[in-house]
């Protein structure tokens, strides 16, 4: 077993891991959205390129999903406040 890393290196590695984890979370969302929006937008047999419609649909699909997520948070927060008042 090699020596332990000194404190500065440990900190550097911790920061590095946090960054990599954040990036991995973004990546896993991208996988999730791709899967979801593929099912929604690509209805025909895949051709040699996407139509303008399909590209727009995928892009809108991601944006609207994120809007939906923000909307739900807002609504639930409103309901919570109504319950508390």
């Amino acid at each position: 077993m090699a020596d332990k890393f000194d404190e500065a290196t440990q900190k550097e590695l911790a920061t590095f891991l946090e960054q990599e984890q954040a990036q991995a979370r973004v990546h896993s969302s991208i996988h999730q959205f791709t899967s979801m929006c593929w099912d929604k937008c690509i209805t025909g047999t895949p051709s040699t390129s996407f139509s303008r419609n399909e590209v727009n649909c995928i892009s809108n699909c991601v944006e609207r999903f994120l809007d939906t997520s923000l909307f739900m948070v807002k609504k639930i927060e409103e309901q919570r406040q109504q319950l508390n008042s």
């Binding site: 973004v26 969302s29 991208i30 996988h31 959205f33 791709t34 929006c37 593929w38 937008c41 690509i42 047999t45 895949p46 051709s47 040699t48 996407f50 590209v55 995928i58 892009s59 991601v62 944006e63 994120l66």
Partner: peptide, 23 residues
């Protein structure tokens, strides 16, 4: 179909990636 589908899925992945990251 499979080979086109593979290319299109990668393309979709890239579109999603660009859209999400700019958002």
């Amino acid at each position: 179909c499979l080979s086109r589908c593979l290319d299109r899925y990668m393309e979709a992945f890239n579109i999603v990636s660009r859209t999400y990251i700019s958002r």
